[in-house]
Structures are given as structure tokens and as C-alpha cells.
Nucleic acid binder design. Structure first.
Lengths: 233, 233
DNA sequence: TAGTCACTCGCACACTGTACGACAGGACTC
DNA sequence: GAGTCCTGTCGTACAGTGTGCGAGTGACTA
């Protein structure tokens, strides 16, 4: 449980100097544009006009830096107040906010499942989420369960979504070009999977990213329906 | 869309020789016991009594090797025939099978979200899943949506679960020791998050891995409830 | 016997995270 | 003003990484 959150920060800076905030921000834009593989301490330092090992004064290790970045993302998500939106609307908004954060930061799934999130933003995200599902009427452990099943679902779908987006970008195609090639290639590959072929044909006509969104909404609605039903029992 | 699946395999071997299957299997046990960071081509080759670069005759790159390993995992999951189990029971069993596969191979989340799965086992998994949800009564794109929301939910929860397990193992504690320390530490850290503290206190009494399972079942049931309700409309 | 193919492997390259210790400059104490 | 500390920078070095290249070896075929 030794983590960057449990160690105290240092006092005030003295002269014109690198800051942890600068480092985090530059790392964030690097990650967003070049992906996890594009982030090295040397390159990051160079972008900041600093020597490679200077970063280590501000940040203990690269892993800790990434923990900071993850928590930064948690800070971007908004969890509505159930008083204002109602719990179901709030959960819906929360889900969409969470998904779009993952889509904005496609490197997140690659790193977030290596370590539980214990940073300050993760904490307030958790708190507000619990408030939301507590307001819905859940009690005891069910509050936690309701919160975490919505969160897991959203992160799961969004993660899968960025996986195909990453593949597509690497191939230098548009999503629809990729999907089309996928269908063509499937004629040969999945010859013995008629059910799979049918599924591919179903999607072929539609805009790929719309299908992704629709699929996401379908699942989220279904899950919230299930939660609502559970409340009425 | 250039992937290891689209390239043809080579002909028969000649003399006593390394095989792709050996490599895959050894890599699998290494990954399961030492994690992703413990797998390097050099060390893997050494375990097989081979030179490092010999592996590259059998496998194009490390990334491709990992693709093979991922597909191997997909092959372990069973998707029941809806004729035998009924769709809801089938989906339940599928979910549990999927979750336990992730728990057996905790390195999976770290790699599976970097690229869509297109291997043969992924295909049959997909096919059988579609059959299952087709049998439930869904039609058109809804079949795909139903299938993928269950899959995303299960993978999402299981991924989060292995994240805390990994942290715990790294700390060399049992799950419950870790949880206890977590609660203790939270007294200070989350002082301004009373809702979070309450949640931690709720869990404190219970066996941690039982709570995980319960949480998983709660969400899966809820999701299937939602799907069932959708069918009746 | 010669040649070809399947396979192995040592070396080398460019790159990684980061420990260490030397250094510089501002701020404090005497 | 002199000395000392604390904050911050950075060059060098180490142990590792994935993998391209080309030389080598054994078995089979003509």
C-alpha cells in the first residue's frame, strides 16, 4: 500500500524551476497523442527542455508518474448531484462522462488495470458515485455493488472501443475503411463461422462509431433498468 | 488489419526442434506466474534452452506472441449451448467462465485492450455467444449488443479485480491484510470523504474475495434482469 | 556428392528506467 | 561577509529490452 499518495509533498520551490504539474501536463499530452509507447522519461524531459534525470527529483518513478496521470483523468469525470438530476439521469450522465474520458485518453485501459486507483480524484469520484447510488435507494453493500457494476460496465465497453480505435489508427485508415476490410477479410477467415459473418454483415451498413455508441447506450440502459427493477423489489 | 492470423503457417518441421506450441505454452506459464513484466524474449528462450533470437523463427514479434497467448485464453472459456442450459443459465455460466479465466490469467487486462481479438478462438467464442443471445430472442443488432454488454461487464469487473489482487501480491500480503491496512490508512487519507469511509467500513467485516464475487454476481444478475425485461417488451 | 531448405544463434543497435554523485545557486545562520 | 545547507539539475553508467542481420548447422532431396 506504499504509493505516491501516502508520501507527503515537498515544501515551496525556490527559483525558476520545473514543477510536477508541468511534468504531468506534458506527459498527458504526450500520452494522448503518441500513446503509452511514446512516453519515455528521456523524451519527456527533452520536451520540457530538461535533462532526463531531472524529472526524478519531482517524481519518484515512471510508474508513479502514470499514477498521477490516471488520477488526473478521474478528475475530469463529473458525477452529477442526484438532487438535481435524479439518480437515473445522474447515472446516465456519469456513464457518458466516464466513457468519453476514456475515449479522450485511450492509453488509460492499458494502465488502469495494473493497480487500484487511490488518488484524491479517484476518492472524490468514488464518494460522489456512492452518493448517487445511495440516493437511488440502495442500502449497505448494495450501494457499492450498484456503483461498481455501472463503472465496470462503462470502463469495459470503452476499453474495448479504444482497442479497435487504436488498431485502426495504427493501420492509418478510417474506422469505416477498416470495418469494410474486416468484412472482406472475414469472408475467407471466418468461413466456418456463419453466425459471425452474419453479425459482420449486420454492422456493415452502419456507421461504425454510431454502432459503438448505440451498443454502449443499449448496455447502460439495460443495466440501469436492472438496477431500477431491483429497487422496486 | 495485418495480424498474425492473416499470415499462413509454415510447413512441417524437420528434426527435433522448437515449436510454436512449446513457446506459447512456456510463455503462458511465465506470464501466469511472473506477470507481464516477467516475460522477456531472452528469458523465455533461456527457459526453453534456446538462443534468444531462435524464437523469432517461430513467432514474428513479441506482440504477435502475446496475441497468440490472448487467443489461447479465449479458448479456455466455455459458452454453453442454449438448447441445453437455456439462455439465461447459459449466459450466467459464460460470465463465470470468463471471469475465472481472467482471474487465472491476471496479465490479460493489461494487454487485451491494446488490440481487438481476431484469432480463431476469439471467433468461435464470438459465434457461440451470438448463438446464445440469438436463442434468447434478440434480433438484428440487438444480438450483438446483448452479447457485448455482458462481455464488457464481465471483463470490466474481472479486470478491476485482478488490479487489486496484483497490488496485494506485490505487497506480499493476503487480501484481508491489505484491506485492513487500507481501512486504517483511509482514516487519514480520506478524512474529507465520509461516504468513502463508510463504504470501507461496510466491507471491513467481510471476506474480501467473497465480496468481490458477490459484487460480480450482483452486477451480472442485474444486467441479465435488464436483458430479460427488454425481451418482454 | 552437391545443393537446398529448415532452423539456430551470436553479435550488434538503438533504446529503456533509473541509481549515483558531482555540481550550481539561492537562503539562512553566524 | 563567510560558511553552510537545502533545493534542484544533470552527465555518466548499468543492466536490461526487442529484434535485424548474417553466419552457421544438420537433414533431406536430386
Amino acid at each position: 500500500m506504499e504509493s505516491i499518495w501516502s508520501r507527503p509533498r515537498d515544501a515551496a520551490p525556490a527559483r525558476e524551476t520545473l514543477t510536477r504539474e508541468q511534468i504531468v501536463q506534458m506527459a498527458m499530452t504526450t500520452l494522448d497523442t503518441e500513446g503509452l509507447a511514446g512516453l519515455s522519461m528521456r523524451k519527456l524531459a527533452a520536451k520540457l527542455g530538461a535533462g532526463a534525470t531531472s524529472l526524478y527529483w519531482h517524481v519518484p518513478t515512471k510508474v508513479d508518474l502514470i499514477d498521477l496521470l490516471i488520477d488526473e483523468v478521474w478528475g475530469e469525470i463529473d458525477v452529477p448531484d442526484p438532487e438535481l438530476a435524479g439518480w437515473r439521469n445522474g447515472a446516465l450522465l456519469f456513464g457518458h462522462s466516464l466513457r468519453s474520458a476514456v475515449l479522450r485518453h485511450p492509453w488509460l485501459p492499458e494502465v488502469m488495470y495494473t493497480r487500484p486507483s487511490l488518488g484524491p480524484n479517484a476518492m472524490t469520484l468514488g464518494s460522489r458515485g456512492l452518493v448517487l447510488f445511495g440516493a437511488a435507494g440502495f442500502t449497505g453493500l448494495d450501494i457499492d455493488y450498484a456503483m461498481s457494476c455501472v463503472m465496470s460496465y462503462v470502463l469495459g465497453t470503452a476499453s474495448a472501443e479504444v482497442a479497435v480505435q487504436g488498431e485502426v489508427r495504427k493501420a492509418g485508415q478510417t474506422l469505416d475503411e477498416w470495418a469494410a476490410e474486416m468484412v472482406r477479410l472475414a469472408q475467407a477467415t471466418v468461413a466456418d463461422h456463419p453466425v459471425m459473418q452474419e453479425s459482420l454483415r449486420r454492422r456493415a451498413g452502419h456507421d461504425v462509431s454510431r454502432v459503438h455508441t448505440e451498443s454502449f447506450v443499449f448496455g447502460l440502459d439495460t443495466l440501469l433498468d436492472g438496477l431500477e427493477a431491483r429497487l422496486k423489489k
